[in-house]
Computed example of a mutant assay.
Amino acid sequence: MERSAADLLIVAGGDDAMWPSLRCADDLAARRRAAGRPVRVLTRTDAGHRPRFPGEGPAPVSEQFLYGGSPAADAALGAASRPYVLDVLRGPGSI
């Protein structure tokens, strides 16, 4: 985490019912910044474990896992993060 030269984007939902996404995202970002490496963190307090990108339907209901969030909040986080995800996938100098 601290040594990687890769661009890092962290997307986290605050209503994640599987694990403490926001706390973990903040911890990872702090480690990254302390090492002098760039990081972008995108969060939404009412989104769950599975942000959904534009064009994706709501996450299917699981009988095994609780994801938290709501279809609207998960879609909003996915829509907000999509441009940044595409930038990271395109690589340096893509903006």
Score class of each variant (00 low, 15 high):
residue 3 R to W: 05
residue 85 V to H: 10
residue 62 S to E: 03
residue 18 M to F: 04
residue 68 G to I: 02
residue 48 G to I: 05
residue 2 E to M: 09
residue 27 D to N: 10
residue 18 M to K: 04
residue 50 R to W: 01
residue 26 D to P: 00
residue 86 L to M: 13
residue 89 L to K: 09
residue 31 R to I: 00
residue 63 E to P: 01
residue 84 Y to N: 05
residue 19 W to L: 14
residue 14 G to A: 07
residue 89 L to M: 15
residue 52 R to C: 08
residue 73 A to M: 04
residue 18 M to W: 02
residue 30 A to P: 01
residue 22 L to W: 01
residue 24 C to I: 13
residue 11 V to Q: 02
residue 19 W to H: 10
residue 91 G to Y: 12
residue 88 V to D: 03
residue 57 G to F: 01
residue 39 V to K: 10
residue 51 P to H: 03
residue 72 A to W: 01
residue 74 D to H: 03
residue 57 G to Y: 02
residue 29 A to Y: 04
residue 87 D to S: 14
residue 65 F to C: 08
residue 24 C to M: 14
residue 86 L to Y: 10
residue 73 A to E: 04
residue 24 C to V: 09
residue 67 Y to N: 09
residue 27 D to E: 15
residue 20 P to L: 06
residue 46 D to N: 11
residue 65 F to N: 08
residue 41 V to R: 05
residue 63 E to N: 07
residue 27 D to C: 01
residue 72 A to N: 03
residue 44 R to W: 00
residue 30 A to K: 13
residue 24 C to W: 11
residue 38 P to N: 10
residue 39 V to P: 07
residue 10 I to C: 08
residue 58 P to S: 14
residue 29 A to L: 11
residue 91 G to P: 06
residue 12 A to F: 05
residue 77 L to D: 07
residue 78 G to E: 05
residue 8 L to Q: 12
residue 68 G to N: 09
residue 40 R to W: 02
residue 54 P to V: 09
residue 35 A to H: 05
residue 86 L to E: 15
residue 84 Y to D: 15
residue 52 R to A: 13
residue 34 A to Y: 00
residue 22 L to A: 04
residue 67 Y to H: 13
residue 6 A to N: 11
residue 90 R to H: 12
residue 93 G to L: 11
residue 37 R to C: 03
residue 67 Y to Q: 03
residue 84 Y to H: 15
residue 67 Y to V: 08
residue 16 D to G: 10
residue 73 A to S: 14
residue 78 G to Y: 02
residue 45 T to W: 00
residue 71 P to R: 13
residue 66 L to F: 12
residue 85 V to N: 05
residue 43 T to K: 03
residue 76 A to V: 08
residue 61 V to Y: 01
residue 62 S to V: 03
residue 62 S to F: 01
residue 11 V to S: 06
residue 41 V to A: 03
residue 5 A to K: 13
residue 62 S to D: 11
residue 35 A to L: 05
residue 10 I to P: 08
residue 61 V to F: 00
residue 56 E to S: 10
residue 93 G to T: 11
residue 12 A to Y: 02
residue 58 P to Q: 07
residue 24 C to Y: 12
residue 79 A to P: 04
residue 93 G to H: 09
residue 54 P to L: 04
residue 92 P to H: 12
residue 31 R to Q: 12
residue 27 D to Q: 14
